[in-house]
Simulated scan of single mutants.
Amino acid sequence: MHCFVYASQRKPNTYLWLAKRDDFGRIPESLALMLGEMRFALEVELTDERKLPQEDAKAVLEHLLTQGWHLQLPPNETLASANHPAYRSAPTDRSHDS
């Protein structure tokens, strides 16, 4: 699969993989706000056999095929749930924060 990788200008070492070039309308608004301005970094042909330094190519491909995007965070961060489709529709109940 041909895909496009963008670097977040706001969050160092954070990358957004897209199935279509400049298709930022596919990502959740909250994620777009978190990432800020994006800079094009790489265009790549991705297969599930390809070795990636910090990501599982099969997982990246699955996210690209099912939702059109994949979030790659620095190794020390754990927001991997943001790649899950439920992230887009998860309610934000903060009533217990009061």
Score class of each variant (00 low, 15 high):
85 P>G: 10
61 L>A: 00
79 L>D: 10
43 E>L: 06
57 A>Q: 03
39 R>C: 06
55 E>D: 03
43 E>K: 15
34 M>D: 10
33 L>V: 07
36 G>P: 01
79 L>A: 09
56 D>E: 09
53 P>G: 06
89 S>E: 11
64 L>Y: 01
32 A>W: 08
85 P>F: 10
53 P>A: 14
81 S>F: 11
62 E>C: 07
78 T>E: 14
49 E>Q: 15
57 A>R: 00
58 K>I: 06
45 E>K: 03
41 A>C: 04
91 P>Y: 02
51 K>T: 13
87 Y>Q: 06
25 G>M: 08
32 A>V: 05
85 P>K: 02
48 D>I: 02
41 A>N: 08
38 M>P: 00
30 S>Q: 10
37 E>A: 15
86 A>N: 06
34 M>F: 10
66 T>S: 07
87 Y>D: 02
83 N>V: 04
40 F>W: 14
84 H>S: 00
56 D>R: 12
82 A>I: 14
76 N>R: 10
76 N>K: 12
86 A>V: 07
35 L>P: 04
28 P>Q: 02
47 T>V: 05
31 L>I: 10
51 K>C: 12
54 Q>N: 15
43 E>Q: 14
53 P>Q: 02
31 L>R: 11
70 H>C: 14
71 L>I: 15
61 L>T: 01
64 L>H: 01
25 G>P: 02
79 L>H: 04
78 T>H: 09
84 H>L: 09
34 M>K: 13
56 D>T: 12
47 T>S: 15
27 I>K: 07
80 A>K: 13
68 G>V: 03
67 Q>C: 08
88 R>N: 12
72 Q>W: 06
31 L>E: 08
80 A>N: 08
57 A>K: 03
70 H>I: 08
71 L>T: 04
65 L>N: 06
68 G>C: 01
67 Q>M: 08
58 K>E: 09
41 A>Q: 13
83 N>T: 06
57 A>L: 12
72 Q>A: 08
56 D>H: 08
71 L>C: 12
40 F>M: 13
45 E>A: 10
87 Y>I: 08
60 V>W: 00
48 D>Y: 02
41 A>H: 06
68 G>S: 02
68 G>W: 02
79 L>G: 14
30 S>D: 10
25 G>H: 15
30 S>C: 06
72 Q>T: 11
52 L>H: 01
82 A>F: 15
81 S>C: 14
44 V>F: 00
79 L>E: 07
38 M>D: 03
89 S>Y: 07
82 A>N: 04
33 L>T: 09
33 L>D: 10
28 P>K: 11
70 H>M: 01
51 K>L: 12
53 P>K: 10
73 L>R: 00
62 E>N: 01
78 T>K: 14
42 L>N: 15
90 A>E: 07
54 Q>I: 07
78 T>D: 13
47 T>K: 11
82 A>Q: 09
58 K>T: 04
82 A>S: 07
32 A>C: 05
46 L>P: 01
42 L>I: 02
77 E>S: 11
84 H>V: 01
49 E>Y: 08
31 L>M: 07
46 L>I: 05
85 P>Y: 06
79 L>Y: 11
30 S>P: 05
91 P>F: 05
52 L>P: 12
